[in-house]
């Protein structure tokens, strides 16, 4: 090994060239080249054709449904996730450890399994669907509400798992200090605890949204998949592929990715505003 090469990589440890080489080939072959295809294929339609294929009412309806439901589900996950994290960190009760482990269930459970299970529960003749339809006349499965439930299910662990460690590391001295300064418990929670958790909540929101917007398996069983009404954007990609409209499918996929990244970027910016004390490079 020459001194020049050693100087470049600045370490006494071996294997840099090998590991970086393996990593870059692995990354390029599996991720970068395929995503490049996604970014380039839609332009075969030409700018006007690309615009036409995205501005198609059916595509717009699907995108509106996917993004609207994902944002709503992530918003619902905020209070639910905060509640679960709070209870798991702050209180002790029988079954707490088991509950803590089970929070990861939506990560581990295959989405198709979650999909058929939720449908079995909320279908008009399902465990919950039948009584709800009978008592209130509510229809859940095969409506946007069903999609929302599936997205809440798969997104919840993201909020719990990002809030949990922050809550655990929150020094109780801060709350005690607030009490010595005369704050009521509610004031303490609102003015001391919640602001400290806000960045983590926002991160959890972003992760839950990111997962929900592209979710497929757990949604298509419960969604009903009616064009213009309950057809999510990922399903529309599949439909376009079945029509052998590759460029059209890629256009929907690209639109989804660009929109999702724009929203995540916004969440990221908001996060910086929320934590001026931790201005990071």
């Amino acid at each position: 090994m020459t001194a020049a090469r050693r100087r470049w990589r600045r370490s006494a440890l071996p294997g840099f060239g090998l590991s970086l080489g393996v990593t870059l080939s692995w990354l390029s072959a599996i991720v970068l080249i395929p995503l490049a295809a996604l970014a380039l294929r839609p332009w075969e339609l030409g700018p006007a054709g690309l615009w036409a294929s995205i501005a198609d009412p059916r595509v717009l309806a699907a995108l509106r449904l996917s993004f609207g439901a994902a944002l709503a589900a992530a918003a619902i996950n905020l209070p639910l996730g905060l509640l679960l994290a709070w209870v798991l960190v702050r209180y002790d009760f029988p079954g707490r450890r088991l509950a803590d482990a089970m929070v990861d269930l939506p990560f581990a459970l295959p989405t198709a399994v979650a999909g058929v299970a939720l449908t079995a529960l909320y279908a008009p003749n399902g465990w919950l669907g039948a009584p709800l339809a009978e008592a209130f006349g509510w229809r859940i499965a095969f409506t946007p509400v069903g999609i929302l439930i599936a997205l809440v299910f798969i997104g919840l662990p993201f909020v719990v798992r990002t809030v949990e460690p922050v809550l655990r590391d929150l020094p109780s001295e801060a709350e005690e200090a607030a009490a010595t300064l005369g704050a009521t418990r509610l004031q303490t929670l609102r003015r001391v605890v919640l602001p400290a958790l806000a960045p983590a909540l926002l991160t959890g929101f972003g992760l839950a949204f990111g997962r929900a917007v592209g979710e497929y398996g757990s949604v298509i069983f419960i969604a009903g998949n009616l064009p213009m009404r309950t057809e999510i954007a990922p399903l529309l990609i599949v439909v376009r592929l079945e029509e052998f409209d590759y460029a059209g499918a890629a256009a929907v996929g690209l639109a989804m990715l660009v929109l999702a990244f724009a929203i995540l970027l916004l969440v990221n910016l908001l996060q910086r505003l929320l934590r001026p004390w931790a201005a990071r490079a």
């Binding site: 917007v213 592209g214 497929y216």
Partner: peptide
């Protein structure tokens, strides 16, 4: 960060 469907589409 990518939808599973897109992961297949590519």
């Amino acid at each position: 960060a990518v939808s599973p469907v897109i992961s297949g589409l590519v």
